[in-house]
Write a protein that binds this DNA or RNA. Structure first.
Lengths: 153, 153
DNA sequence: TGTATATAGTTTAATATCGAACTATATGGT
DNA sequence: ACCATATAGTTCGATATTAAACTATATACA
C-alpha cells in the first residue's frame, strides 16, 4: 500500500483543514457556553455522564488525548466549581476516582442545552449526508494516529 | 433543511473527533520537525512559499484563522531566526509586508523533507480513498464555520 | 478642511497545553 | 522479603493562543 505524491498532498491538506476546523469549532463552542464553562471542562463532564463516573484521572486523560498534567488542571477547575468530587482510590493508593455531583450533571445539561441552537445552525448550513459519510474516515484516521503515538497500548 | 436529533449527535461526534485528530496530528508533526521549527512557524513559511510572499501579517492571520496577536508572535519568531523579513509598506503606513529569506525557503524545504516519512507512514496505514472522499465535507464545514464566525467577510 | 470612523499592528493578562522532573505507591523477579 | 521497575498523579517552566486595550495611520463625509 505505497502512497503516491498526490496522496501525500491530499493527506497534508486534509490535516491542515482539520486543524482549522478544530480551531473554529472550539471557538464556536466557547462562544455559546454558559459563563465560566470551558470546552475542556465540558468535554470531561460529558465524558463522565456518557460513560459513567468513578473513572480515574488517567483514563479520562487518555480518552481525550491530553497529558496527565492537563487533566490535573481541568479536574482542579471542575472540583473548584463543585462539579465533580475526586477521592482517593481505596484499592490503589496511587489512584483517584472522579465522580459527578448533582451540580456537575446540571452544568453539563445546561451546556448541552446551550449547544443545541449552534449545532442546529451548523447542521442546517451543511450537507449532512457528506458529514455522515466522512465520519468513518476521520475515526480511522484518529485510530491510526493514536496507535502511532502510543504503539504499545 | 431542519436537522434531526440524530444529525446533531453525529455532528457533535464529528467535531469531537476532529478536535482529537487535530491534536494528535499537531503532535506527530512537531515530533518530526527539525529542532526549533514549530507547527505554526512551518504553516506560515509554507503559506508564503505556496501563495507567494509580500503579504501582510493580517492576511496571513486570516488565512490560517488565528488572531493578529498570534501572528505578531509567530512572525517575531520567524524574523528572529532570519527566516523572513518584515518591512513597512511604503503605500500604507499602517501595514507591513512579509518576505521570505533564502534561509526561510531552505528551512521550509527541510521541514517538508522531514515530514515526508511521517506522512507516508500515515498514508500507508489508512484507506486513502476514504480520506479523499471525506475532504470536500471537511472543506465545506470549514467554510460554514468561517462564515458563521465572521458573517460580513 | 476637519472630524469621526475604520483598519493594521502591538501589547497585556489570562488560559490550556506540553514535556520533564518529581513523589508516592504497586508489582514482579530473584 | 527486597530491590528494580512500572504506574498515578502533581508541579514546573515554556509556548501558543485568545480577547481587549492601545497606538498609529488611512478614509469618508460633512
Amino acid at each position: 500500500m505505497t502512497a503516491n505524491e498526490s496522496d501525500l498532498q491530499t493527506l497534508f491538506r486534509f490535516l491542515n483543514e482539520i486543524g482549522i476546523v478544530a480551531q473554529l469549532s472550539a471557538h464556536a463552542f466557547e462562544k455559546v457556553m454558559p459563563a465560566g464553562m470551558t470546552l475542556p471542562q465540558f468535554v470531561v463532564l460529558n465524558h463522565l455522564v456518557r460513560l459513567g463516573d468513578g473513572r480515574t484521572p488517567l483514563s479520562i486523560a487518555q480518552a481525550m488525548q491530553v497529558t496527565k498534567g492537563a487533566m490535573t488542571n481541568t479536574l482542579g477547575h471542575l472540583e473548584g466549581k463543585g462539579f465533580i468530587a475526586v477521592v482517593p482510590d481505596a484499592r490503589d493508593g496511587r489512584s483517584k476516582r472522579v465522580s459527578l455531583t448533582q451540580e456537575g450533571r446540571a452544568a453539563r445539561d445546561a451546556a448541552i442545552e446551550a449547544l443545541g441552537p449552534e449545532l442546529r445552525g451548523i447542521a442546517g448550513e451543511i450537507a449532512m449526508p457528506g458529514i455522515i459519510e466522512a465520519l468513518p474516515a476521520i475515526e480511522s484516521l484518529r485510530k491510526v494516529l493514536d496507535v502511532r503515538r502510543n504503539p504499545k497500548a
